[in-house]
Design a protein around this nucleic acid. Structure first.
Ligand code: SF4
Ligand code: SF4
Lengths: 134, 134
DNA sequence: TGTTTATGATACTAAATTTGTATCATTTGT
DNA sequence: ACAAATGATACAAATTTAGTATCATAAACA
């Protein structure tokens, strides 16, 4: 029952570090050193963030990654969608077949309601929010 | 990001059927027929529910399962704990090591808050609630 | 212009969790 | 004794999560 998976968490931490770094660009090597995240795994994560335009990458010497957006425009839900797929707490699908109860099921209705609440909370979490002291 | 797993869902459906059945005891075979759940898997689930005292089992001919509690005393959260472990949305543990950020991390704080809300919603879901029309 | 240092792309592997099966033992009613 | 149910337990398949390995490509710079 994990709300966020490891790659989302790693992405958050990496973005936080990049955001607060004095340098214009941050290299994977530096992130690995300070965050203690497995190198190749983090690289893959950053490459994905680059593709999704949350980071801009620079190749070659003095290369690295920098943010493409303001901190309050980078949302946790963006990362979750990227690394964990659509924001859903319940699919009601077994072996590609939709559960026959789905129209009337009160459990599903309840979970849908919880889902709405969870997502609205999550939407309020930006990089800026995460970095703010206190 | 699945809030409830399959065995919890199966357990809910089985308990619902048993609860609304006219018979005093319901057999696995009947449940399999009507709910279309893989037999041996459902058996295992019911055996666990028996061990956990949510069901009482009767062996031998005319055997089967019956509820041990009133419908409003059987909570979804009980099932979730049984089949999915402690109610937690975030462990903050990688490879048995607690994340060093854990004391100050705002992400964790947020998730903890969401967790509280989710759990309190889930606690209000009893078998009686699930069976009530409208 | 070639070497070094960075990321890009992609395929592969390992570990963990979820979702099941298979088998034999035990109890009970007839 | 036999049939019909559950109990216990070990095994296996499928899926998801987590992580590696390798080669290609681009930019800086000597
Ligand atoms: S039973 Fe209700 S919750 Fe479970 S899968 Fe069917 S619809 Fe979804
Ligand atoms: S970063 Fe925050 S949320 Fe992620 S593991 Fe560490 S404490 Fe938990």
């Amino acid at each position: 029952m994990k709300l966020i998976t490891r790659n989302t968490d790693y992405a958050v931490r990496a973005l936080c570090f990049i955001a607060q770094s004095k340098k214009k660009k941050v290299t994977v090597e530096e992130l690995v050193r300070v965050l203690e995240i497995p190198g190749p795994f983090l690289r893959k994560i950053l490459q994905i963030l680059n593709k999704k335009k949350l980071l801009k990458s620079y190749k070659g010497q003095n290369g690295g990654f920098s943010l493409t957006k303001l901190q309050d425009k980078i949302l946790l839900t963006d990362l979750m969608k990227i690394f964990q797929g659509p924001l859903k707490l319940n699919e009601c699908i077994f072996k590609k077949q939709v559960c026959p109860n789905i129209k009337t099921c009160k459990l599903k209705k309840k979970i849908d309601k919880i889902e709405k609440c969870v997502i609205s909370e999550l939407k309020s979490v930006s990089l800026a929010y995460l970095l703010k002291k206190n």
